[in-house]
Protein backbone atom coordinates (compact mmCIF):
# COMPACT_ATOMS: atom_id res chain seq x y z
CA UNK A 1 0.00 0.00 0.00
CA UNK A 2 2.75 2.41 0.93
CA UNK A 3 4.60 1.59 -2.20
CA UNK A 4 1.43 2.25 -4.13
CA UNK A 5 0.97 5.67 -2.53
CA UNK A 6 4.60 6.47 -3.18
CA UNK A 7 4.06 5.65 -6.85
CA UNK A 8 1.02 7.88 -6.91
CA UNK A 9 3.10 10.76 -5.55
CA UNK A 10 5.76 10.17 -8.19
CA UNK A 11 3.10 9.75 -10.87
CA UNK A 12 1.49 13.06 -10.03
CA UNK A 13 4.86 14.83 -10.31
CA UNK A 14 5.61 13.33 -13.71
CA UNK A 15 1.97 13.75 -14.75
CA UNK A 16 2.17 17.48 -14.01
CA UNK A 17 4.88 17.79 -16.61
CA UNK A 18 2.96 15.77 -19.19
CA UNK A 19 -0.15 17.79 -18.45
CA UNK A 20 1.65 21.09 -19.05
CA UNK A 21 2.94 19.88 -22.42
CA UNK A 22 -0.38 18.26 -23.34
CA UNK A 23 -2.20 21.56 -22.84
CA UNK A 24 -0.19 23.15 -25.63
CA UNK A 25 -0.91 20.26 -27.97
CA UNK A 26 -4.56 20.34 -27.26
CA UNK A 27 -5.03 24.10 -27.54
CA UNK A 28 -3.16 24.29 -30.84
CA UNK A 29 -5.05 21.30 -32.16
CA UNK A 30 -8.30 22.85 -31.00
CA UNK A 31 -7.70 26.04 -32.89
CA UNK A 32 -6.00 25.01 -36.14
CA UNK A 33 -6.38 21.21 -36.13
CA UNK A 34 -2.62 20.79 -36.26
CA UNK A 35 -0.66 18.24 -34.25
CA UNK A 36 2.25 20.52 -33.59
CA UNK A 37 5.13 18.08 -33.55
CA UNK A 38 7.53 20.89 -32.74
CA UNK A 39 5.82 21.38 -29.39
CA UNK A 40 8.04 18.89 -27.55
CA UNK A 41 11.06 20.81 -28.80
CA UNK A 42 9.79 24.03 -27.27
CA UNK A 43 9.75 22.11 -24.02
CA UNK A 44 13.37 21.07 -24.65
CA UNK A 45 14.32 24.69 -25.34
CA UNK A 46 12.62 25.72 -22.09
CA UNK A 47 14.85 23.25 -20.28
CA UNK A 48 17.96 24.71 -21.93
CA UNK A 49 16.97 28.32 -21.31
CA UNK A 50 16.39 27.43 -17.65
CA UNK A 51 19.75 25.70 -17.56
CA UNK A 52 21.61 28.73 -18.86
CA UNK A 53 19.72 31.08 -16.56
CA UNK A 54 20.69 28.98 -13.58
CA UNK A 55 24.28 28.14 -14.48
CA UNK A 56 25.56 31.18 -16.38
CA UNK A 57 23.49 33.89 -14.81
CA UNK A 58 23.06 32.26 -11.39
CA UNK A 59 19.39 33.05 -11.27
CA UNK A 60 16.99 31.32 -8.90
CA UNK A 61 14.37 28.80 -9.96
CA UNK A 62 11.44 31.18 -10.23
CA UNK A 63 13.21 33.93 -12.26
CA UNK A 64 14.63 31.23 -14.53
CA UNK A 65 11.18 29.75 -14.93
CA UNK A 66 9.69 33.09 -15.90
CA UNK A 67 12.47 33.83 -18.38
CA UNK A 68 12.15 30.36 -19.94
CA UNK A 69 8.41 30.86 -20.29
CA UNK A 70 8.83 34.31 -21.81
CA UNK A 71 11.40 33.20 -24.40
CA UNK A 72 9.40 30.09 -25.29
CA UNK A 73 6.32 32.26 -25.76
CA UNK A 74 8.21 34.38 -28.21
CA UNK A 75 9.62 31.34 -30.03
CA UNK A 76 6.17 29.78 -30.26
CA UNK A 77 4.73 32.91 -31.84
CA UNK A 78 7.65 33.28 -34.26
CA UNK A 79 7.41 29.65 -35.34
CA UNK A 80 3.70 30.01 -35.94
CA UNK A 81 4.15 33.19 -37.98
CA UNK A 82 7.01 31.87 -40.11
CA UNK A 83 6.17 28.20 -40.53
CA UNK A 84 2.42 27.72 -40.11
CA UNK A 85 0.71 30.99 -40.97
CA UNK A 86 1.66 30.89 -44.66
CA UNK A 87 0.01 27.44 -44.78
CA UNK A 88 -3.33 28.56 -43.35
CA UNK A 89 -5.24 27.31 -46.36
CA UNK A 90 -2.97 24.40 -47.22
CA UNK A 91 -3.88 20.76 -46.72
CA UNK A 92 -3.49 19.36 -43.24
CA UNK A 93 -0.83 16.92 -44.33
CA UNK A 94 1.32 19.78 -45.67
CA UNK A 95 1.15 21.54 -42.33
CA UNK A 96 1.89 18.32 -40.47
CA UNK A 97 5.01 17.71 -42.55
CA UNK A 98 6.07 21.30 -41.90
CA UNK A 99 5.65 20.70 -38.17
CA UNK A 100 7.92 17.67 -38.38
CA UNK A 101 10.42 19.82 -40.28
CA UNK A 102 10.29 22.53 -37.64
CA UNK A 103 10.79 19.90 -34.97
CA UNK A 104 13.92 18.52 -36.65
CA UNK A 105 15.19 22.03 -37.22
CA UNK A 106 14.85 22.90 -33.54
CA UNK A 107 16.43 19.64 -32.40
CA UNK A 108 19.45 19.79 -34.65
CA UNK A 109 19.73 23.56 -34.51
CA UNK A 110 19.98 23.27 -30.75
CA UNK A 111 22.51 20.48 -31.09
CA UNK A 112 24.63 22.77 -33.28
CA UNK A 113 24.78 25.42 -30.59
CA UNK A 114 24.99 23.37 -27.42
CA UNK A 115 26.35 20.03 -28.75
CA UNK A 116 24.57 16.73 -28.32
CA UNK A 117 26.06 16.19 -24.87
CA UNK A 118 23.84 15.56 -21.91
CA UNK A 119 24.05 18.37 -19.36
CA UNK A 120 23.09 18.28 -15.75
CA UNK A 121 21.09 20.94 -14.02
CA UNK A 122 22.92 22.70 -11.19
CA UNK A 123 22.21 21.22 -7.76
CA UNK A 124 19.38 22.97 -5.97
CA UNK A 125 19.95 24.92 -2.82
CA UNK A 126 18.14 25.51 0.45
CA UNK A 127 14.65 24.28 0.98
CA UNK A 128 14.47 22.66 -2.45
CA UNK A 129 16.89 19.94 -1.36
CA UNK A 130 14.58 18.87 1.47
CA UNK A 131 12.22 15.99 1.53
CA UNK A 132 9.34 15.20 3.80
CA UNK A 133 8.12 11.91 5.17
CA UNK A 134 4.51 10.94 5.66
CA UNK A 135 4.91 7.54 7.25
CA UNK A 136 7.08 5.76 4.75
CA UNK A 137 6.10 7.91 1.81
CA UNK A 138 8.71 10.39 0.73
CA UNK A 139 7.65 13.67 -0.87
CA UNK A 140 10.49 15.85 -2.05
CA UNK A 141 10.39 19.61 -2.07
CA UNK A 142 10.96 19.45 -5.84
CA UNK A 143 7.81 17.41 -6.27
CA UNK A 144 5.86 19.94 -4.27
CA UNK A 145 7.36 22.74 -6.35
CA UNK A 146 6.41 20.99 -9.59
CA UNK A 147 2.85 20.33 -8.53
CA UNK A 148 2.38 23.84 -7.11
CA UNK A 149 3.70 25.57 -10.21
CA UNK A 150 1.60 23.34 -12.44
CA UNK A 151 -1.56 24.00 -10.48
CA UNK A 152 -0.94 27.76 -10.49
CA UNK A 153 -0.38 27.74 -14.25
CA UNK A 154 -3.48 25.66 -14.86
CA UNK A 155 -5.68 27.93 -12.77
CA UNK A 156 -4.23 30.90 -14.60
CA UNK A 157 -4.89 29.23 -17.96
CA UNK A 158 -8.46 28.35 -17.05
CA UNK A 159 -9.03 31.94 -16.01
CA UNK A 160 -7.72 33.27 -19.33
CA UNK A 161 -9.73 30.84 -21.41
CA UNK A 162 -12.97 31.22 -19.48
CA UNK A 163 -13.11 34.86 -18.50
CA UNK A 164 -10.99 37.05 -20.72
CA UNK A 165 -11.85 38.53 -24.09
CA UNK A 166 -8.99 36.78 -25.84
CA UNK A 167 -9.99 33.52 -24.13
CA UNK A 168 -13.50 33.85 -25.53
CA UNK A 169 -12.00 34.56 -28.93
CA UNK A 170 -9.91 31.39 -28.62
CA UNK A 171 -12.96 29.30 -27.89
CA UNK A 172 -14.92 30.90 -30.70
CA UNK A 173 -12.15 30.35 -33.26
CA UNK A 174 -11.78 26.72 -32.13
CA UNK A 175 -15.47 26.14 -32.64
CA UNK A 176 -15.98 27.88 -35.97
CA UNK A 177 -13.33 30.02 -37.59
CA UNK A 178 -15.60 31.71 -40.13
CA UNK A 179 -18.27 32.49 -37.59
CA UNK A 180 -15.60 33.90 -35.27
CA UNK A 181 -14.42 36.14 -38.06
CA UNK A 182 -17.98 37.36 -38.56
CA UNK A 183 -18.01 38.43 -34.90
CA UNK A 184 -15.04 40.67 -35.68
CA UNK A 185 -12.45 38.42 -34.04
CA UNK A 186 -8.94 38.69 -35.47
CA UNK A 187 -8.28 35.04 -36.18
CA UNK A 188 -4.54 35.39 -36.84
CA UNK A 189 -3.89 37.15 -33.56
CA UNK A 190 -5.99 34.62 -31.72
CA UNK A 191 -3.99 31.75 -33.21
CA UNK A 192 -0.73 33.49 -32.29
CA UNK A 193 -1.96 33.93 -28.76
CA UNK A 194 -2.81 30.24 -28.54
CA UNK A 195 0.72 29.30 -29.59
CA UNK A 196 2.06 31.79 -27.06
CA UNK A 197 0.10 30.24 -24.20
CA UNK A 198 0.96 26.67 -25.17
CA UNK A 199 4.65 27.48 -25.60
CA UNK A 200 4.83 29.24 -22.25
CA UNK A 201 3.46 26.13 -20.55
CA UNK A 202 5.87 23.89 -22.45
CA UNK A 203 8.76 26.15 -21.41
CA UNK A 204 7.68 25.82 -17.80
CA UNK A 205 7.48 22.03 -18.16
CA UNK A 206 11.01 22.02 -19.60
CA UNK A 207 12.62 23.72 -16.66
CA UNK A 208 10.61 21.64 -14.18
CA UNK A 209 11.77 18.43 -15.80
CA UNK A 210 15.36 19.71 -15.66
CA UNK A 211 14.97 20.20 -11.95
CA UNK A 212 13.28 16.84 -11.45
CA UNK A 213 15.47 14.58 -13.57
CA UNK A 214 18.57 16.71 -13.57
CA UNK A 215 19.72 15.87 -17.08
CA UNK A 216 18.80 17.50 -20.37
CA UNK A 217 19.78 16.96 -24.01
CA UNK A 218 18.64 18.33 -27.38
CA UNK A 219 16.48 15.27 -28.16
CA UNK A 220 14.79 15.15 -24.78
CA UNK A 221 11.58 16.62 -26.19
CA UNK A 222 10.73 13.76 -28.50
CA UNK A 223 9.45 11.10 -26.12
CA UNK A 224 7.73 13.34 -23.55
CA UNK A 225 6.24 15.23 -26.51
CA UNK A 226 4.73 12.04 -27.88
CA UNK A 227 3.50 10.96 -24.47
CA UNK A 228 1.92 14.34 -23.84
CA UNK A 229 0.25 13.95 -27.21
CA UNK A 230 -1.13 10.60 -26.06
CA UNK A 231 -2.31 12.36 -22.90
CA UNK A 232 -4.11 14.97 -24.99
CA UNK A 233 -5.78 12.29 -27.10
CA UNK A 234 -6.71 10.34 -23.99
CA UNK A 235 -8.50 13.32 -22.50
CA UNK A 236 -10.07 14.30 -25.81
CA UNK A 237 -7.95 16.38 -28.14
CA UNK A 238 -8.93 20.03 -28.20
CA UNK A 239 -10.40 19.86 -24.68
CA UNK A 240 -8.37 21.67 -22.03
CA UNK A 241 -9.49 19.79 -18.88
CA UNK A 242 -9.02 16.59 -20.89
CA UNK A 243 -5.34 17.38 -21.38
CA UNK A 244 -4.91 17.92 -17.65
CA UNK A 245 -6.58 14.63 -16.75
CA UNK A 246 -4.72 12.83 -19.55
CA UNK A 247 -1.37 14.18 -18.36
CA UNK A 248 -1.88 12.95 -14.83
CA UNK A 249 -3.22 9.63 -16.04
CA UNK A 250 -0.30 8.93 -18.37
CA UNK A 251 2.23 10.07 -15.76
CA UNK A 252 0.75 7.78 -13.13
CA UNK A 253 0.47 4.79 -15.46
CA UNK A 254 4.06 5.21 -16.54
CA UNK A 255 5.35 5.34 -12.98
CA UNK A 256 3.21 2.34 -11.98
CA UNK A 257 4.45 0.24 -14.87
CA UNK A 258 8.04 1.14 -14.04
CA UNK A 259 7.53 0.53 -10.33
CA UNK A 260 5.58 -2.74 -10.39
CA UNK A 261 6.46 -4.20 -13.74
CA UNK A 262 9.41 -3.50 -15.85
CA UNK A 263 10.62 -0.01 -16.64
CA UNK A 264 11.50 -1.25 -20.12
CA UNK A 265 7.79 -1.49 -20.86
CA UNK A 266 6.74 1.90 -19.58
CA UNK A 267 6.90 3.62 -22.96
CA UNK A 268 5.27 0.70 -24.73
CA UNK A 269 2.35 0.79 -22.32
CA UNK A 270 1.75 4.47 -23.00
CA UNK A 271 1.50 3.85 -26.72
CA UNK A 272 -0.63 0.77 -26.15
CA UNK A 273 -3.01 3.13 -24.36
CA UNK A 274 -3.05 5.37 -27.43
CA UNK A 275 -4.00 2.44 -29.65
CA UNK A 276 -6.67 1.37 -27.18
CA UNK A 277 -8.26 4.84 -27.05
CA UNK A 278 -8.25 5.10 -30.80
CA UNK A 279 -10.14 1.80 -30.98
CA UNK A 280 -12.53 2.27 -28.05
CA UNK A 281 -13.25 6.00 -27.93
CA UNK A 282 -11.32 8.05 -30.47
CA UNK A 283 -12.89 11.29 -29.22
CA UNK A 284 -11.19 10.71 -25.84
CA UNK A 285 -12.42 10.62 -22.27
CA UNK A 286 -14.20 13.99 -22.33
CA UNK A 287 -14.84 14.11 -26.06
CA UNK A 288 -18.39 14.16 -27.37
CA UNK A 289 -19.60 12.54 -30.53
CA UNK A 290 -20.64 15.70 -32.30
CA UNK A 291 -23.90 15.81 -34.12
CA UNK A 292 -24.98 18.76 -36.15
CA UNK A 293 -28.46 20.10 -36.56
CA UNK A 294 -29.45 20.97 -40.06
Amino acid sequence: MEQFLQQIVNGISLGSIYALIALGYTMVYGIIKLINFAHGDIYMLGAYIGYFCMTHFHLGVIPSLLIAMAICTLLGVIIERIAYKPLRNATRIAVLITAIGVSLFLEYGTMFFVTANVRSYPPLKGILTQSFKLGNIVITAQQILIVCITVILMVFLQFIVKYTRIGKAMRAVSLDRDAAELMGINVDNTISFTFALGSALAGAAGILVGIYYNSINPLMGILPGLKAFVAAVFGGIGIIPGAMIGGYFIGTVEVMVAGYGNSMFKDAVVFAILILILIVKPSGLLGKETKEKV
Partner: peptide, 20 residues
Amino acid sequence: GRRIFSSLTVLENLELGAYL
Protein backbone atom coordinates in the same frame (compact mmCIF):
# COMPACT_ATOMS: atom_id res chain seq x y z
CA GLY B 1 -26.60 27.19 -41.67
CA ARG B 2 -26.68 29.55 -38.65
CA ARG B 3 -23.15 28.73 -37.52
CA ILE B 4 -23.81 29.40 -33.87
CA PHE B 5 -21.13 28.38 -31.37
CA SER B 6 -22.80 25.17 -30.32
CA SER B 7 -20.93 24.36 -27.11
CA LEU B 8 -21.15 27.92 -25.80
CA THR B 9 -24.25 29.14 -24.02
CA VAL B 10 -26.89 31.31 -25.66
CA LEU B 11 -25.68 34.27 -23.64
CA GLU B 12 -22.03 33.69 -24.61
CA ASN B 13 -23.08 33.57 -28.26
CA LEU B 14 -24.79 36.93 -27.90
CA GLU B 15 -21.78 38.40 -26.09
CA LEU B 16 -19.52 37.25 -28.92
CA GLY B 17 -21.77 39.12 -31.32
CA ALA B 18 -20.71 42.28 -29.47
CA TYR B 19 -17.03 41.26 -29.48
CA LEU B 20 -15.77 44.54 -30.92
